[in-house]
């Protein structure tokens, strides 16, 4: 029963995606929607991402410093470890999970409300390809803007580590900078960005699925946006595992 429902969901998800990727009727209108979504889903997440990154960067540095309190291990290892954990996992995966909550529930509830108040049918009656017009700009906005958010997050995470690490006297500024430069692998950034793009697609498309097919009223809209967050987080974690195997394994 449970399996059957999941298979049905997956099937309908792919049918929806086929409807989403259709040629826009009117580029101008899609562009306007894209710009609006860029602001609603991307720019408006900047503050949250910045604050979380600064503090998590700090915590990562402090905890690494505490774990490496051994006179034999050079202090700059703290910076190396901080850099790697932020670039490889914290920024792309953790921040994407947080965005799955924020952006995912926003998309699911916006589309769900449009569904139950017949706005989607109103679009259909006019002859608008509703799935494409409503969902494509959101996917595009997140796929393009989330990598920017993640780069900002990496930067601020390391800055946070630097500020808290040096101000608590756990590591000197020169050691920190030195550590950042040792063994630096540009591929890791590329890896993180690839993950981010995939996650952005997962979050937006799955949340859109849960919002677009709501049946009922306000209660169901709420329920479905919870489901959207749960499902996109789970799929995100699973994809993270697969991508890590694939790209780094």
């Amino acid at each position: 029963m449970f399996i059957k429902r999941i298979l049905e969901d997956i099937g309908r998800y792919f049918i929806l995606m086929k409807l989403v990727f259709r040629r826009p009727d009117n580029f101008r209108m899609y562009w306007d929607a894209f710009v609006r979504d860029l602001y609603m889903l991307g720019v408006k997440s900047l503050g949250l991402v910045a604050i979380i990154s600064l503090f998590v960067g700090a915590v990562v540095t402090i905890q690494t410093a505490l774990n490496l309190e051994n006179p034999i291990i050079p202090k700059y290892y703290i910076a190396i470890a901080t850099r790697e954990s932020i670039i490889l996992e914290f920024s792309p995966t953790m921040i994407s999970l947080i965005l799955a909550g924020k952006v995912g529930s926003n998309i699911a509830s916006t589309l769900g409300t449009m569904r139950v108040s017949e706005q989607i049918e109103a679009l259909e009656v006019m002859g608008v390809k509703s799935a494409s017009f409503l969902i494509l700009p959101k996917i595009a906005a997140c796929v393009i803007f989330n990598p920017i958010l993640i780069i900002i997050s990496m930067f601020l995470g390391i800055v946070g580590g630097y500020i808290f690490g040096t101000s608590t006297g756990m590591i000197s500024g020169t050691d920190f900078i030195k550590g950042l430069q040792i063994d630096y692998t540009p591929f890791y950034i590329a890896y993180a960005l690839v993950k981010t793009v995939v996650f952005a697609f997962v979050i937006t498309s799955i949340s859109a699925y849960y919002g677009f097919f709501v049946k009922g009223g306000a209660v169901e809209v709420g329920e479905n946006s919870t489901k959207a967050v749960v499902a996109s987080s789970l799929v995100l974690i699973l994809t993270n595992y697969l991508l890590t195997q694939l790209l780094l394994g």
């Binding site: 609006r36 916006t110 409300t113 449009m114 108040s117 017949e118 706005q119 049918e121 109103a122 009656v125």
Partner: peptide
């Protein structure tokens, strides 16, 4: 079409 609940686009 005029829908039962108006169905205006609220954004």
């Amino acid at each position: 079409m005029v829908f039962q609940g108006s169905a205006l686009f609220d954004s």
